[in-house]
Design a protein around this nucleic acid. Sequence first.
DNA 1: TCCGTGGATTATCAAAGGTTATTGCCCGCC
DNA 2: GGCGGGCAATAACCTTTGATAATCCACGGA
Lengths: 260, 260
Amino acid sequence: MQTGFAFSKLADHLANLAELTADDLDLLTKMPSTIAHFGSHQAILRHGDASNQCCLLLQGYLSWQDAYGSEGQITSISVPGDIADLRTLYRPCIDGNLIALGPAVVAFVPHRCLRELSIRSPAISRALLLMLIGDHAIQRNWTINLGSRDALTRAAHLLCEITARLQNVGLARDFRLSSPFTQSDLAAACSISPVHANRTIQELRRCNLLHWHGKTLTIPDWPGLVRLARFDPAYLGLRRRDQTPQQAQSGAARADVVPA
Amino acid sequence: MQTGFAFSKLADHLANLAELTADDLDLLTKMPSTIAHFGSHQAILRHGDASNQCCLLLQGYLSWQDAYGSEGQITSISVPGDIADLRTLYRPCIDGNLIALGPAVVAFVPHRCLRELSIRSPAISRALLLMLIGDHAIQRNWTINLGSRDALTRAAHLLCEITARLQNVGLARDFRLSSPFTQSDLAAACSISPVHANRTIQELRRCNLLHWHGKTLTIPDWPGLVRLARFDPAYLGLRRRDQTPQQAQSGAARADVVPA
DNA sequence: TCCGTGGATTATCAAAGGTTATTGCCCGCC
DNA sequence: GGCGGGCAATAACCTTTGATAATCCACGGA
């Protein structure tokens, strides 16, 4: 594992959703794409655009925001290995703005190529569908986060989620992660005001649950943070690498129900 | 339209997502199912269950709640014609509790039958996928609702959404809808306390935006409610049937076919 | 008919968080 | 080497909403 090619994080992510063969990985490697770099808070897609390609995140973080400009609410965050706008593969309209959180490197892949890939590899087709469903589960969890937690546990839960998702693609192994976010970004993701985000972060620091200096963030007490946030990673639907394969997911999702 | 068979609302819903032929409708009609009735606040599915069938809502409302018991937060609501647990067709684990809001009639259809249906009708297969994506868009919108609106506009937006979704399957044509909800249900869906839900409803009544007596709810001033909630139905991804095209929404929703 | 129960309503009090403004720091830029 | 901009930290004040509790009302059962 841990190959060095551009899509290695995507391959990790997909492999966590379905069994991929060497052939599948080979198909992935050969997928044509255009690499692009974006600066912090730069827009990648705008509300109302039409799309004929997907945006795979290679490095950094992306966010969907409902309003373009300085202070729109963040409705989801992508980490490397994610396909931020996978849903456009099936419904090509864009509602929301896709904004880079910190510097980001993305690969654009035409929808056509992904569809071909789906046809040639049932495993990848299935993994893409499960990725879509996983995104949905994450979204539902954000609803719960905003609806039932206060600022402190909300921020804690968000940190847990991002850490778990990074670990799923081999990042943040030592609970140390790159954090080009501003406090206002965190505020926008937790739907709190920037000054209250500041209060909240300080509280987390005071409890020794968070070190955030410069562009690096470390979590000194992971079990403590998990306990505070009542974080249960089950909703992510991931088989964690380097862990005992506890559940062999059943084979219910079959590629043949997905229109090409 | 408005056929009387059990799945007519589902057919309406699917037909709004993809072009269905007479054959497709015929396949739907013949789909085997088990009808079941549930009482208010009765659980249909529980967190942790495994599932080998889908739950189509025929009459009433269902809700997903994250905690079972009296006061769990509601993370989504189903209206007639919805498949409340469609995602289990692809990932058969259940996270959350499916609870009836008021008396409800549902039809259970084995996953196997839906998969067969998908194989025999590409249009239905595609419609199911789009339904899944539509659910995702609705969920994203709930995130926005909780994150960026206060109690009053939040409740208003929820009412708009439910009304629009009902109209999509031929209900609530005159902005009069059955509402077996309690105020606490509304509170759980808006993530506010029951007493504040009461304050909010009274405010809506005072503004003449809502009549809610007994089990019937009417909206005397739809444009006013839409304005207050800043409701834009585009995210529902629906072609509205039988309605004056008052707003020429952005090109995403095509209105080129309007069945009689 | 009387009573019990669940939901709606109202009042009071307290907490969580929003708003605005000011200050200071760091860093890149001229 | 001074300047300006973005970001973090802090303070003062205010609004919204939550919690608790008491009352009231409608309805259905014994």
